[in-house]
Simulated scan of single mutants.
Amino acid sequence: MDRIVVIQKAEIKDCIGIRRLIQELADYEKMPQGPKICHKTLEKHGFGERIYYRCLVAVDESAEAGGEGRRLVGYALYHLNFTWRGRTVYMEDLYVSPAFRSKGIGTKLWKRLLKDAMDEGACHCIFSVLDWNVPSLDFYKSKGAEDLTASRGYQTFRIGKHAIQSIAASDMLAIDVRQASGDLTSIVAAYREMANELGRAHELQITESAGLTSSPAWCDLLLATSATGELLGFLLYCLSYSTWEGIQLYVKDVYVKPVHRRSKIASSLLRSLMQRGEALGCGRCDMVVAAGQEAALEFFRHHQAVNLSEAEGWVHMMLERLHMEAVIYS
């Protein structure tokens, strides 16, 4: 009998099936003990008061409903965030059960994810793949995705739960660190300064309104200011989602004006973020650092960040908007 598989937005009743597929993916990635959350956590974080992730599911409509409701044979879980180049979508998981592979289901899930993200203004898609997963790497590259780990030396780092707690409890200088509230003009100016310093001003697409004032926000800002209100530095981050541990922090950028460096301002910003993460129960904080950014590498290593690209073989990949459109309409 021919199977009828359709792509739909996940519903709360799908969380049992999504959790089963998450475990299948963890088994495939040779990390069976990885997932710590249950389907109730997925229900709370995906369909509660605040939405921390979005999910598409592949439904086998020719199968009889079992104890988990609709029979799910694949899923794509993602969240929306922001970089200095504008809005972006981070694809956390894309998975299809083995019996349903080579039928175009994974491509259909990805197309729908990209279209939904582009409809909300995303300019590119970010995701990670294990370096031993050659079929997936080859597939994404064939669609125009760039291996940023190979081309630009991008490395994924992670601050774990115990380090989050340690940093949150550390002593820092008495610097005013606060959530951004209507100070977006100053932050855009600081971003321009950062882009000029890195010789990448042509890539800057951040504006006073894009992504920072939407509800819920695609990202958030911590600002470090002097007693007179001068902006000393900032930390841009988002609340992302792990199908293993739930809500997590994702640091997008940390910047301190050159004249104020070596003053522990960046550490104060990170401490404030870790305090918020601890309050939310976040088990980890991820960030990506490019090769050659020695100051950033030293900073995160000093704060107990582990290089996952070296330890586990994660490859950081990006699909630009032009290639997103090509995938959608192919």
Rank of each mutant, 00 (worst) to 15 (best):
G277W: 06
L239P: 00
G246P: 04
A224Y: 07
W218P: 00
V289R: 02
R261V: 10
G277Q: 13
E230I: 06
F234L: 14
T225W: 01
G281P: 03
P216G: 03
A227Q: 15
I206M: 14
R284M: 15
G283W: 03
V289Y: 02
V259N: 01
S267Q: 09
V251M: 00
H260Q: 11
E208Y: 02
F234P: 02
A279T: 10
R276D: 12
L273N: 10
T225A: 07
W244I: 02
A279F: 10
V256D: 01
S214I: 11
G246D: 02
Y255N: 12
S263M: 06
V288Q: 09
L273Q: 08
Y237A: 07
G281H: 04
G233Y: 01
G281L: 09
A291M: 07
Q248Y: 03
H260Y: 15
L212F: 10
C282P: 03
G281T: 04
L269W: 05
A210N: 14
L235V: 13
S214A: 13
Q275H: 06
G229C: 11
S268R: 15
S272H: 13
E208G: 14
V289K: 08
S215H: 14
W218I: 03
A227K: 15
L270N: 10
Q248S: 01
A210I: 15
V251G: 00
K257V: 06
I265Y: 08
T213P: 05
L280K: 14
P216H: 09
R284Q: 15
T207H: 07
T243C: 02
T243R: 00
D286F: 12
A291N: 09
C282S: 15
E245G: 05
Y237Q: 04
L249Q: 03
M274I: 11
C285P: 12
T207M: 08
S240R: 11
S240Q: 06
D220N: 07
K257I: 01
G211K: 10
A227P: 13
Y241W: 03
L273M: 09
R262W: 07
S242R: 03
S263Y: 00
G229M: 05
S263D: 01
A217C: 08
I206H: 02
L280F: 08
L280C: 13
Y241N: 01
S267R: 09
E208W: 05
L249M: 08
C219K: 01
P216W: 05
L269A: 08
C219E: 03
G283I: 02
K264S: 09
L223M: 03
S209E: 14
M287S: 02
W218T: 04
A210H: 09
K264H: 08
W244G: 01
D220H: 11
R271M: 13
E230V: 03
D286W: 12
G281E: 05
D286Q: 12
V289I: 14
P258K: 13
V288C: 13
A266P: 02
P258S: 12
P258R: 09
S263C: 08
S215A: 13
S226L: 02
L273C: 10
L269K: 08
G229A: 06
G211I: 14
R261H: 09
G246W: 04
L221G: 00
G277V: 11
M274F: 13
A210P: 04
S242E: 04
A210S: 15
V254R: 07
R261L: 14
E278W: 12
D286H: 12
C282H: 04
T225F: 04
M287A: 11
